[in-house]
Write a protein that binds this DNA or RNA. Structure first.
Length: 300
DNA sequence: CGTATTTGACCAGCGC
DNA sequence: GCGCTGGTCAAATACG
């Protein structure tokens, strides 16, 4: 909890406002179209405000340099709390947030992210089919992204294995469950479409990676390892300068595969720093999606 | 043939 | 206690 090292895993270090202090293990980062208030209302928010008084503030920073023809003003909505107990913010589905009480939190550092890769297989959490009765399901920190995209499974630099799919109540779209293919990594993610806005993909990450991305070779900072950049390969995402539409491919299973030029090496194969200076495109990739769209005021 | 996905079944938590 | 729902498992299936 208090051992998040230098970069806050919730914000990925985006919050640089000295008045902000993040020390909880839940967080929410939503990337959405601020003109679409249905995103907020879906989570029980009214007038772009969360219903929870414990939230110190919501920042909705718009990016003004987006081309108008994209017809989408992408903004970052960050919910942060100093209370140390964000509940709903880390839970996209308000109906399911009640279980995220203090009893449900792991007391050990397992939730801090640094001990996520303990070598235990993911099934050990619940014991697989032979689940121990009375053992509570441990939830790790979660970060959610709302992404305008036509493609459900957005490439984020890690490899994921789908292990389940469920129909979601009050939603025509199923929810897919993915697990990191790294055997020592317990990070999971859920992917679903917003029932109110089918063009919005809700991606929820749970846990933190303890390894580098597969597709992104450079040495990543702590928070980048924890929460990889989210690449949006949809047509509406051309607003992001680092995306190269001509390199866009769609995988056999509907999984988007974005292949910027800098992507070619396996995890752990670090590029040397003395290679050619980064182009603006490369710089943007290094910063990741959030780094690209988070207003400068929210980051250094 | 190895790996990834699909899908029905099972389990846990929660509300009534 | 019961039903509902979310989350997970694992056998079957598909794919390269």
């Amino acid at each position: 909890m208090d051992d998040h090292n230098t970069a806050d895993p919730v914000t990925g270090g985006f919050s640089t406002d000295p008045t902000w202090t993040l020390h909880d293990d839940y967080g929410f980062f939503g990337v959405t179209d601020t003109r679409d208030s249905s995103i907020f209302s879906e989570f029980g928010w009214n007038n772009n405000q969360p219903p929870l008084p414990e939230f110190d503030r919501i920042d909705s920073g718009g990016s003004s340099d987006m081309p108008e023809e994209t017809n989408s003003t992408t903004s970052v909505v960050a919910v942060q709390s100093r209370t140390g107990s964000i509940e709903i913010a880390g839970e996209l589905n308000p109906l399911a947030s009640s279980s995220s009480n203090s009893d449900d939190r792991p007391e050990s550092s397992a939730a801090s992210g640094d001990a996520v890769c303990s070598g235990k297989p993911p099934s050990s959490e619940t014991g697989g089919k032979i689940k121990k009765k009375g053992t509570k399901r441990i939830r790790q920190q979660r970060v959610a992204f709302l992404t305008k995209s036509e493609i459900d499974h957005l490439e984020d630099g890690y490899r994921w294995r789908k292990y389940g799919q469920k129909a979601v109540k009050n939603s025509p779209f199923p929810r897919s469950y993915y697990r990191c293919t790294n055997s020592k990594c317990t990070v999971k993610k859920r992917v679903e479409r917003s029932s109110t806005d089918p063009t919005t993909v809700i991606t929820t990450y749970e846990g933190q990676h303890c390894h580098h991305t597969v597709g992104f070779p450079r040495g990543l900072s702590h928070h980048e390892v924890a929460y990889p950049r989210l690449l949006i390969p949809s047509s509406t995402s051309q607003q992001f300068s680092y995306l190269r539409p001509q390199s866009l491919q769609v995988g056999d299973h509907g999984v988007s595969r974005l292949q910027p030029q800098v992507v070619s090496r396996e995890a752990g194969d670090h590029l040397s720093n003395h290679e050619q200076p980064p182009t603006s495109f490369q710089r943007s990739v290094d910063q990741g999606l959030l780094g690209d769209i988070v207003p400068p005021i929210m980051r250094n």
